[in-house]
Design a protein around this nucleic acid. Structure first.
Lengths: 217, 217
DNA sequence: AGAATAAAACATTCATGCATGTATGTAAAA
DNA sequence: TTTTACATACATGCATGAATGTTTTATTCT
């Protein structure tokens, strides 16, 4: 039983990615063998080396599979022509938290990224990719907030950079903690409150505004 | 040149811990060899196996060295007899961020914990230790806030659990992001603003309060 | 249309290197 | 003389990557 058709081959590839998610989540990235992944899929290492260049290539493919659709959603919030950027942003933020809180696949992949994978000196490709996402995310938030200011939804002297930094840190921090210790609180139930608190800061906190000197400069 | 005196042996142990910090930070935990650590210290693996049980034991010792003093400071904030718990808490929070922002050793160790080490199924000891710290930290924050409420520094209907969760997530999230990408913003400069924003939420955000039903129950 | 050929989609086998743990050696301190 | 504080040497296992094998599908030639 070799040489499947194109669709069967694609299914095999997905199987391998599913296995990678499962095994990386259970054993951690560095600690899992490609044989582990292959066995879990009922295949051999030969299949992995056919579909992917190596272990890191497999990892990147696994990340991309869940990362791309989320990025598309986030990008929609940052659209200049969006007439309710703040509302859209708020809605997206709650949805994303809820998604992570309920979808097993998202939980596994995010958990792997945050707690079951380590950055080491020689594999800069993955770290670089993460940094690009990091910067893009920060930029997207800033564009969204800028549009919200333009449309009078947020104060004009809002410190955009800080607001973006706080949003990114605050949200990922809470998700990070929950993924590390899911029993510690109910993420799904807290989703709205978490988001509301951030937007409360945006509109009300004097510490989120540009200082006089910064505003002048 | 063997058989040093007690003090020299202790110095060797510290050297090994220093090397571990440096090499783990550069190459990641899983990717570094005990020979790497030994070589960096100008010693051999024999020295490591004398002072530590194995690689994980070395790791835990490295963590404890920076963890213990910080925990002691945090515990002081949670003291019931503290007359200004909120002020102490705020001061400590700023100091901790500043410490991480300026002290190279703290940066390395925290960075290793957050980005250069992964949890794998078989080594539950380290993960369990982290979870204990996690719960202790959460409990400490709650005790501190409770004392602050008792002394009229915070509203009585503050949602303690949520406030603790937000604090932990928000702070570690921002530090996490900065350690991952230090060039992205100036953590030291932002320290006070970060903290002020959290305390603004504590005293002003309606979403940080217990809902009527929760308050009754 | 049927045969021949190529190429896809894996499985199997092989060679290599390297990290770990342990066992043993050794010199100085107690 | 024993024990400490390491260094050196050894045995083991295992994961990787590449090489080769195998079968079926797709393509081309006649």
């Amino acid at each position: 039983m070799v040489r499947k058709t194109k669709e069967e081959a694609a299914a095999t590839r997905d199987q391998l990615l599913d296995s990678a998610e499962s095994v990386f989540f259970d054993k951690g990235f560095a600690n899992t063998t490609l044989m582990d992944v292959a066995n879990h899929a009922g295949l051999t290492r030969g299949a992995i080396y056919w579909h992917f260049k190596n272990k890191h290539d497999l990892f990147e493919a696994m990340i991309e599979r869940v990362h791309l659709p989320i990025e598309a959603l986030a990008e929609a919030c940052a659209d200049e022509n969006e007439t309710d950027p703040l509302g859209k942003f708020k809605e997206f933020s709650v949805q994303l938290i809820r998604l992570i809180a309920t979808d097993k696949r998202q939980q596994r992949v995010f958990s792997i990224m945050l707690h079951k994978f380590e950055f080491n000196g020689d594999v800069t490709q993955i770290e670089d990719r993460q940094k690009v996402s990091f910067v893009e995310c920060h930029d997207r938030i800033k564009r969204t907030l800028k549009n919200a200011i333009k449309r009078g939804q947020l104060p004009k002297d809002l410190d955009l950079d800080q607001a973006a930094q706080v949003k990114h840190g605050y949200f990922t921090g809470i998700v990070n903690n929950w993924l590390f210790y899911p029993q510690s609180f109910d993420l799904n139930a807290m989703a709205e409150t978490i988001v509301e608190n951030y937007f409360f800061l945006l509109t009300n906190s004097p510490h989120m505004r540009l200082s006089q000197q910064q505003a002048v400069a």
